[in-house]
Design a protein around this nucleic acid. Structure first.
Lengths: 184, 184
DNA sequence: ATCCCCATGTAATTTGTTACATGATTGA
DNA sequence: TCAATCATGTAACAAATTACATGGGGAT
């Protein structure tokens, strides 16, 4: 575990205080949502593995009508491992966009399908912008500098994308210029 | 194959003219590099699968001292399948950033390690900006609207990121505000 | 000498996604 | 009555990364 994989991110989240897998999922959906996704299928095995390695310990809280709540807490070995993982000098920043890959071939698409793709993406973007504005409105008290930096980053990028799509969608509606064919 | 996976992107690239796996790899490294990565380990099997499905056909060009060059060409069935794949209304746009995940925990890092992470990312960004500027300088003749849209998108986002890091790196160097502890 | 470019591919491994499995409580 | 929230996990599957395997030619 040298990289910032799901395990390491869970470990990092636990450095802020104890939490259950369910709690971490909510954090992945909210603050981490725009740059690092993880579902239950990754989180629960990650926590089990961390516990197996002694990087976190687990306390089971009995509940009625629900499975016992398993609350994880980082150990000092876990804290040391986390700091070690954070030493990686060149962490990746990977975009995998089926959205852009699709529009690359816009000249092969029907205009109404292009429109649909753009407006669906726009809806996603607007949800993110609402989220970022809610953070701002909350004053971001108790946020670490890193958390502020990352959310500001997300907001700046998201707003740029929104503006870019608004300003340039018309390019995709233009009839394609004839390419590599002699038609005069 | 409903989504824009490596297979579909290869198929799309071949809609522009015949090419070998090696050629496609170069396209993944250049124009597609900023939003969709693929290595030989994905491309060669993808081409073999496409050929098996009759979506492309393959012509072997003998060469001296090198393996035969396998040149792939899209078939009419492949073209139909590609257009079908492009109908997906909500293609994903996923960022997975170990860079941002790392900096989220900046308060646990040594200042010099933060510096290293930022300057390494900056170097990557600058390479992309050089690339985008070379495209602009080339006049983007023969580029489809989709290609222009996507490259413009990449340029806008990359420049925003560059500016954001420049303007906000100082946040990460500030001593962390005490969090959830009574010291004041 | 050494590295990069050309050119192909396979196999093992890692990683993550999706579906399945269970089930009470609360609010609309 | 229906959906959402809470709460855990496993198993099957899909996908991509990495390492391995081969080897000549040309530039520095």
């Amino acid at each position: 575990m040298r990289a910032m994989d799901v395990k390491t991110v869970c470990l990092g989240m636990l450095s802020d205080g104890e939490a259950s897998g369910y709690d971490l999922k909510k954090e992945f959906e909210s603050t981490f949502g725009h740059f690092f996704a993880a579902g239950f299928g990754s989180i629960y095995p990650a926590l089990a593995a961390l516990a197996g390695d002694g990087l976190v310990d687990c306390r089971e809280v009995p509940q009625e009508g629900k499975p016992d709540r398993k609350v994880y807490r980082i150990t000092s070995a876990g804290m040391a491992r986390l700091k070690e993982s954070l030493k990686k000098p060149d962490p990746s920043h990977k975009l995998r966009s089926e959205f852009l890959a699709t529009l690359w071939f816009a000249h092969l698409m029907e205009p109404e399908d292009i429109e649909t793709v753009l407006s669906n993406r726009m809806a996603d973007i607007d949800r993110y912008i609402v989220m970022f504005n809610e953070y701002d409105a909350g004053g971001m008290k108790d946020w670490t500098p890193g958390e502020r930096f990352v959310c500001g980053f997300g907001k700046a990028v998201t707003e740029t994308i929104r503006q870019y799509i608004e300003d340039n969608a018309h390019m995709l509606k233009a009839r394609p210029t004839q390419k590599k064919t002699a038609t005069g």
